[in-house]
């Protein structure tokens, strides 16, 4: 196993507010990792730093031994928690755009998944329903043969059926040599597919362990442990 992602003493402040407080972690390949924490814990900030969308106040990130740059963007497939696609494009145009910019993009796979959902190639993105927009974004991200998939709240705000679709799409389409980092607070839905979990609270990592060890040590599910750790 090789180290795909490494964070060393990562700090991020928004004015006086501390969003990340000396985060250090290491992610190896071939794993699905849950980045779990309540709202405002710092999950999205950490993910944005990994993707080079935010600059850390101090500390550093290494992706496959490189700091976030054009080279790491070729390796990381990122799903943000906002509707980030160019709304004026058609489905066909956005697929074509991804295939032009990302060498690892699998166009046939994308169309196969879109076809299964019955999404019209000629449809404008702004005319798609919220659920279909979410699925569309996920299909684009999972159609890449990336080394690291970073998914920020992929199952938040969608109905249970869409949630199941999203989870199945993630499991069936990620490159087995790669790792998937999924941020969420809906743990019960995703617990069964996770290998490792990282609990993040107030910008600090409070737990980083495998799901099996958590169950053995604590005699409870990840969801139950989460409720215990983040109890008010």
């Amino acid at each position: 196993m090789s180290e795909l992602l490494r964070c060393d003493g990562l700090c991020k402040n928004y004015g006086k507010k501390v969003a990340l407080d000396h985060i250090s972690l290491s992610v190896e390949n071939g794993k699905i990792i849950g980045l779990l924490g309540p709202n405002g814990a710092g999950k999205t900030t950490l993910i944005k730093i990994i993707n080079g969308l935010l600059t850390p106040t101090s500390g550093g990130v290494m992706i496959n031994g490189m700091t976030p740059s054009v080279e790491t963007k070729k390796l990381v497939s990122y799903l943000p928690d906002v509707n980030y696609l160019y709304h004026w494009m058609t489905v066909e145009q956005i697929v074509s755009m991804f295939s032009e910019f990302y060498e690892d993009f699998r166009t046939e796979l994308a169309y196969e998944m879109l076809g299964r959902l019955g999404i019209d190639k000629k449809a404008k993105l702004k005319t798609l329903s919220k659920g279909n927009k979410e699925k569309m974004s996920l299909i684009l991200v999972m159609s890449r043969n990336a080394l690291l998939y970073v998914l920020d709240e992929p199952i938040a705000g969608v109905d249970p059926a869409t949630r199941d679709y999203i989870i199945t799409t993630i499991i069936n389409n990620y490159n087995p040599q790669a790792s998937v980092l999924i941020s969420t607070h809906l743990i019960s839905d995703i617990e069964d597919v996770l290998d490792d979990v990282i609990f993040i609270k107030d910008g600090r990592i409070v737990l980083h362990n495998t799901v099996d060890e958590i169950r053995e040590e604590h005699h409870m599910s990840v969801d139950e442990l989460f409720r215990e750790v983040f109890k008010w």
Binding site: L53, V70, K73, V76, Y84, Y86, F101, Y102
Partner: peptide
């Protein structure tokens, strides 16, 4: 804006 999430994750300087 939100489109920046796509623009800045493209392998482009």
């Amino acid at each position: 804006s939100s489109e920046g999430y796509l623009s800045h994750t493209l392998p482009v300087t």
